[in-house]
C-alpha cells in the first residue's frame, strides 16, 4: 500500500472514515514511518488548537443583549434593531466620512442624518434618555448606553478608552454619591465614557462625556444656557430631572440628576471636570 493522502489522514484523525477505512489506515501506519510522522504532526495541530484555555464572555454581555432586546421591543419602529450601532455601522460611517471630505461636511451631514438608519451613529442621542426618564431613570440610562453601543469597563481603563477626552470619574462625588458602573460608549468613530452613581437613599446620578464636536439630539426637549458654579453651561429640565452640560474644547461633560442644590451640583461638576476653566464654557 502506498502512502496515505494527507486529506485522508486528516479524515482519519477527525473520525470521518468508515470502520473498514480506519482499519486499513491503522494497518499501514504501523509499518510506515512517514505516515506515522504525518499523523503525529496532524495530531499536534489538533492538540495545539484545542489546548487554549477557556475564555468566558465578559460580565455585562448578557445585560447588554437583554437591554437591546427590551429597547427593540419597546420601540414602535420595527426597524429599530437594524439601527443598533454595531461594528458594521461604525465602519460604514467611517467610509462615508471619507467621502464627506470630498463633497463637503454640510452636505455630508445632511446626507447622513437623513439616512435615519445610521444617523444616530454620529449623534449623541439624548432624546432616547430624556423621553423615557420619567418612567425610570436607570432604565432610561441603560437604554441610552445600549443605543450608543455601551460596554462595561473597569473605571481604571476609562481614560485609556477615550484618550481624547478630559474628564474624571472619581469613586465618590460630593453629596455621598458612590460610583456604580462605568461604560465605554461609541459616537460614530469617537469614543465616549459614562458612569452611573448611586447613594444611600436610592437616588441615581449619571455622568456622560463625549467630544464636543458631536451633534446632540434633545428631541422635543429644550436646552437652555445656565450657570453652574464658576462655569457657564447648558441644561435640559424634564420633570424633576435635569441634565447639565459643561463643554470645553476637548470634552462635553454631562450630569443627569435630581440635585436641586446648586452648590452640590457645582461640586459635582468640578469633580468630573476639574481642569475645565470658567472661560471654557460655550454653547454646543
Amino acid at each position: 500500500m502506498s502512502c496515505i493522502e494527507l486529506e485522508k489522514l486528516g479524515r482519519y484523525l477527525d473520525a470521518e472514515l468508515s470502520e473498514k477505512e480506519r482499519t486499513e489506515i491503522e494497518s499501514h501506519v504501523r509499518q510506515c514511518p512517514h505516515c506515522t510522522s504525518e499523523l503525529a504532526a496532524l495530531t499536534s495541530i489538533h492538540d495545539q488548537i484545542a489546548a487554549v484555555k477557556t475564555v468566558n464572555p465578559p460580565p455585562g454581555l448578557w445585560e447588554s443583549i437583554e437591554t437591546s432586546l427590551d429597547s427593540a421591543a419597546s420601540s414602535t419602529d420595527p426597524e429599530h434593531l437594524r439601527r443598533i450601532p454595531g461594528p458594521s455601522n461604525f465602519r460604514k460611517f467611517r467610509a462615508a466620512a471619507s467621502i464627506a471630505a470630498a463633497i463637503g461636511l454640510v452636505g455630508f451631514a445632511a446626507f447622513w442624518i437623513t439616512r435615519g438608519a445610521t444617523a444616530q451613529a454620529a449623534t449623541v442621542d439624548f432624546a432616547i434618555l430624556l423621553d423615557s426618564i420619567s418612567k425610570g431613570a436607570v432604565e432610561a440610562f441603560d437604554r441610552f448606553i445600549t443605543h450608543h453601543n455601551g460596554r462595561p469597563i473597569d473605571p481604571a481603563d476609562a481614560r485609556r478608552s477615550a484618550p481624547d477626552l478630559d474628564f474624571e470619574i472619581p469613586a465618590e462625588l460630593p453629596g455621598e454619591w458612590r460610583r456604580a458602573r462605568t461604560y465605554r460608549l461609541k459616537f460614530g468613530g469617537s469614543q465616549g465614557i459614562a458612569a452611573s452613581y448611586t447613594r444611600g437613599d436610592g437616588e441615581f446620578l449619571a455622568t456622560i462625556f463625549h467630544p464636543p464636536v458631536k451633534q446632540e439630539n434633545f428631541g422635543t426637549h429644550i436646552d437652555y444656557p445656565c450657570v453652574v458654579g464658576k462655569h457657564r453651561g447648558h441644561s435640559v429640565q424634564v420633570g424633576e430631572w435635569r441634565m447639565v452640560h459643561l463643554t470645553d474644547p476637548s470634552t462635553c461633560h454631562c450630569v443627569l440628576s435630581r440635585i436641586t442644590d446648586d452648590d452640590q451640583l457645582a461640586g459635582v461638576m468640578s469633580a468630573i471636570a476639574p481642569r475645565s476653566k470658567p472661560s471654557d464654557g460655550h454653547g454646543h
Binding site: 447588554s64 443583549i65 432586546l69 434593531l81 461594528p87
Partner: peptide
C-alpha cells in the same frame, strides 16, 4: 476582545429576533 464582544452581542440579538 472588543470586536468579539460587539459581534457576540450582534449574534445573540439575531438569534433571539
Amino acid at each position: 476582545p472588543e470586536t468579539a464582544l460587539d459581534l457576540a452581542q450582534a449574534t445573540y440579538l439575531k438569534v433571539f429576533t
